[in-house]
């Protein structure tokens, strides 16, 4: 079963499967979210949006709608 990064709980380590095609596909990939990358949700803003993710030691913040585009491996 596939899920997206927006549905992951804080502290959970997950692996990126793919990025949904569209305007932000390149941008998300360039920020380091590529197939096979391990990421961890660090914290979320109030109302659960945006979220902050640890990508290879740096903290990336992205809106929930943007995290929806990041498919993760089960």
């Amino acid at each position: 079963m596939k899920s997206s990064l927006s549905k992951i709980n804080i502290g959970q380590l997950v692996r990126v499967a793919s990025i949904t095609q569209g305007d932000l596909q390149v941008k998300l990939t360039e920020m380091g979210l590529y197939h096979g990358k391990e990421v961890k949700v660090l914290f979320k803003a109030p109302f659960g949006d945006p979220i902050a993710v640890d990508v290879d030691g740096y903290v990336l913040s992205l809106r929930k709608s943007e995290a929806d585009l990041v498919q993760i491996e089960a």
Binding site: L24, L28, V59, S61, R63
Partner: peptide, 11 residues
């Protein structure tokens, strides 16, 4: 250009 946030939170 579409509005997006994708932002690095520097230490």
């Amino acid at each position: 250009d579409k509005s997006f946030l994708l932002l690095e939170l520097p230490s």
